[in-house]
Simulated scan of single mutants.
Amino acid sequence: MELSITEKKEKGTRPEDAKLAFGTTFTDHMFNMDYSIDKGWHNPRIEPFANLVLSPATMMLHYGQGIFEGLKAYKTETGEIRLYRPRDNFKRLNKSAKGLCIPTIDIDFIMESLKTLLRLEKNWIPETPGTSLYIRPTVIATDPYLGVRASHTYRFFIILSPVGAYYSAGFNPVNIWISKDHVRAVRGGIGEFKTPGNYAASLFASEQAKKEGYAQVLWLDGIERKYIEEVGAMNIFFCINDEVVTPKLNGSILPGITRDSVLTLAKRWGMKVSERKISIDELIKAHGDGTLKEAFGSGTAAVISPVGEMRYGDKVLTIADGKTGPVAMKLNKAITDIQYGKAEDTEAWIEKV
């Protein structure tokens, strides 16, 4: 396939880095590509950012057949543009595609197309530490049809957004609400895929948590409602005694790219690392006897997010005196230093643009 490029005549201006929020500003151009059964993926193009024109009967709107990813581009002090583990994101996109009956993409072609888009939009990549260019690849079902089946046509697009910190508090502890009454996903469902329905399922409890002053919801398993799974926007880790613990992937937890980075680095540093089932009762006990030293989340948006407080029903668990712990701090510095070119990339995680 040949990539066509149509440039916008009047270019926009990136907001000042200090004024960047998350996901509110978009660059001048986007990538689009279409799929049909007879042509496969075709007509790849970079063109001015614009609204999509869709029929009211578009299947994505009615049946939720869609997938997406989130990754970032970083600019180093020398002006080099770097992507962090992008091929892992597109491998996960293809895994989600298979789970949602969507045609997979050619990762090599999409990588080259993304790099072309980033070179065109290089002035939109912020340069202040802690800022980046958020990249959102998305696939939606586009058949204008009211009937439950897999679509025959799809649109794949990539949009870009210069961003600051995901949480307004920045790299400071956030407070987490542990949901007792609602679940997000169950094993055997679509919880392990990055699809819009998973996020729709989180909204009701998330709004309840915000009313109580909590930033995110920590979900328990959907069957016994006792085993910890993940937070709405990130995977979760606990430091109990000398062990770094995270819930084992079980089919209802998203396999995070940053989660894998945390596990890799912690093991390389000689830490005791466990991927296993951990119950809310074990967590409460560890808090009570003082062995729960730290809690933190991991994800593309926030990288590492320390947790200062967790609430489960009437129980409030204050962790590390509400401060950022040393493990979270070390991991955040290690990952961001690799992303911004301040440390050696020993794991071959960086792809230069």
Rank of each mutant, 00 (worst) to 15 (best):
E2R: 08
E2G: 11
K9V: 07
K11Y: 07
T13G: 04
E16Y: 13
A21T: 13
A21M: 15
T24A: 11
D28Q: 07
D28V: 14
Y35T: 05
I37T: 06
I37N: 01
I37P: 01
P44F: 00
R45G: 02
R45W: 07
E47F: 01
A50L: 12
V53K: 15
L54R: 10
L61V: 03
G64Q: 09
G66H: 00
I67C: 14
I67S: 10
F68A: 11
T76G: 03
T76M: 04
E77C: 06
T78M: 07
G79M: 02
E80Q: 05
Y84A: 14
R87I: 08
R87K: 14
R87H: 12
D88N: 13
K91Y: 15
K95A: 15
K95D: 10
S96Q: 11
F109R: 12
E112W: 11
T116F: 02
L120V: 09
K122T: 02
I125L: 03
E127S: 13
T128P: 11
P129R: 03
P129A: 08
G130I: 12
P137G: 06
I140V: 08
T142A: 09
T142G: 03
G147C: 09
R149N: 15
H152F: 02
H152K: 13
T153A: 14
F156K: 01
S161T: 12
S161Y: 08
P162K: 06
A165Q: 06
Y166V: 01
S168H: 08
N172T: 13
V174D: 07
I178T: 04
I178H: 00
R184G: 02
A185W: 05
R187H: 04
G189Y: 04
G191K: 00
G191E: 00
E192S: 13
F193H: 15
P196D: 10
S202C: 06
L203D: 08
S206R: 09
Q208F: 03
Q208L: 10
K211L: 14
K211Y: 12
G213V: 11
Y214T: 08
Y214I: 12
W219G: 11
D221Q: 08
D221S: 02
I223D: 14
I223V: 10
E224Y: 12
E224G: 08
K226W: 09
Y227L: 11
I228C: 07
I228Y: 05
M234G: 10
F237Y: 02
F237D: 00
C239P: 09
N241I: 02
E243Y: 14
V245W: 00
T246W: 01
S252L: 03
P255E: 03
T258F: 09
R259Y: 05
R259E: 00
S261F: 02
L263K: 12
R268Y: 09
V273H: 00
S274F: 03
S274W: 06
I278A: 01
L283G: 00
L283P: 01
G288K: 05
F296N: 07
F296C: 02
A301I: 04
A302S: 14
V303S: 03
V303E: 03
M310E: 08
I319D: 01
A320W: 07
T324V: 12
G325S: 08
P326G: 04
P326D: 10
V327Y: 04
V327L: 06
L331K: 00
K333V: 06
A334Y: 05
I335M: 13
Q339V: 09
K342P: 11
A343K: 07
D345V: 15
T346I: 15
E347I: 10
A348W: 05
A348P: 07
K352L: 09
